[in-house]
Design a binder for these strands. Structure first.
Lengths: 238, 238
DNA sequence: TAACTTTTGACATATAATTAACAAAACTGT
DNA sequence: ACAGTTTTGTTAATTATATGTCAAAAGTTA
């Protein structure tokens, strides 16, 4: 029968692919394509929704209908990281959810800072969903003296002068950058010197960083232009 | 000699590819790949920067170095839409910039509304860069009575009850949705009924819409998870 | 103006991503 | 326990995307 043992059964049913710890993924050096990484968080979101609905298991084919993907793609994507499913049964949702959390590195907490306490910086600081995923905003910085000391949620806006000190005194590895592009270039250099490894960049610029630094860009105005393009396309297609 | 005539020369030097108006792109039915659409706004941004620097012309090879793409890819991407370059010369930056603006459908103004006046909605309403691209926020809505009537920049927060009325009385075709996912599903239905064609969706849900409706998703928490994934990958790769 | 250089646009090739197919494993119902 | 069903993980085929190549066009220089 199926039950609590499910997780164990899955992890032991495929010797070649057995994964004892997360580092094995990377040891194997099997390059994961950008397209797969792009989809991973979406799987996570769907699995979370399924859990909330109290559903216990799902087949790749059923999931493919909901996500508007092919079942084949789902199976291939997941098999990049291990054999999480079981023939004749499908995937245990809770188990797969937890596995993807490990893969995404969100099975533990991440402290982060926000540089720029404009509207966007404040919006991020207040985003309760992030906390739910384990991302904890430890500090928010701005250069504008008129807002320094004000509170955003539970944290106080700090002057830029305190940036180095606060990062170095902590174990913070992640920073969201919400300042204009010219300022961003210099601040990012500073962040990297202070030990920041991952940068969530909202500035309209492609940052040049060393190889070991990770940048995730959110170019909102580019997103808006894509919407505009598709609207034009759609209107002209009639 | 090169000069003001450049634009004319370019548009007349390739009969087969000559494009008299924007609808020809779509008439031709030549399917543009998602990958190209993804890159288009980035080209636009780089061209804008080049213009600001006072540079007049650029070759695909020089642009490829700056953008970290191959020259071949740039030429192929652009040739989806027309022959904007000239042998031995390259691309005229101002001309190409304007052409891409037409392609992206940002050569004219777009009125838009924002649904949800939380931190994110307000951040978008205050984003001066959008106005620069021709996107004009005409109204912002919220259901919270305590903030209705307050001003965000120059516009007043309206109650949700006014949504239908305001959209229908205008020519607004675009809406940014910045409300929780459950509310979003219903509101989007309403927006579509009111005549909205393009939806910039910030809610953590994949919206089901008719074929002629365009959705551009900005799933911030997915973006953050991708950052987290890559940081884990980077740390484990040493 | 003629020789030489640059650079595009088009096409051909190579690489990557997606989809299809199917044997083997595990489940289900009797 | 057995027959039939489901569904995975894997490999093969297909499709899509990116890169390399080159003739022809236009620029540049002497």
């Amino acid at each position: 029968m199926l039950g609590d043992e499910r997780g164990n059964m899955i992890s032991s049913n495929s010797d070649k692919k057995k994964i004892d710890n997360i580092e094995d993924y990377f040891m194997a050096k099997k390059e994961i394509s950008q397209a797969v990484i792009q989809r991973l968080p979406r799987y996570y979101r769907y699995l979370e929704d399924l859990m909330d609905q109290g559903i216990e298991r799902i087949s790749s084919s059923e999931l493919s209908k909901r996500m508007k993907l092919t079942a084949s793609q789902i199976r291939q994507d997941l098999n990049n990281f291990g054999g999480f499913g079981q023939q004749g049964y499908g995937y245990n949702i809770k188990n797969l959810h937890d596995e993807i959390a490990k893969i995404l590195n969100i099975d533990n907490e991440h402290e982060m800072i926000i540089v720029g306490a404009g509207h966007l910086g404040q919006a991020l600081a207040n985003y309760t969903n992030f906390r739910k995923r384990g991302f904890i905003v430890k500090a928010i910085f701005d250069k504008d003296p008129s807002i320094i000391g004000k509170k955003v949620g539970e944290i106080e806006i700090q002057p830029m002068e305190k940036l180095d000190e606060i990062i170095k005194a902590s174990n913070i590895k992640m920073a969201a950058v919400c300042i204009p592009k010219n300022a961003a270039v210099k601040v990012v250099e500073q962040l990297i010197n202070d030990g920041i490894v991952g940068i969530w960049n909202f500035a309209h610029v492609d940052l040049e960083v060393p190889e070991n630094i990770v940048i995730e860009n959110v170019h909102l105005s580019e997103s808006l232009m894509r919407l505009s393009y598709r609207m034009g396309e759609s209107l002209n297609a009639e």
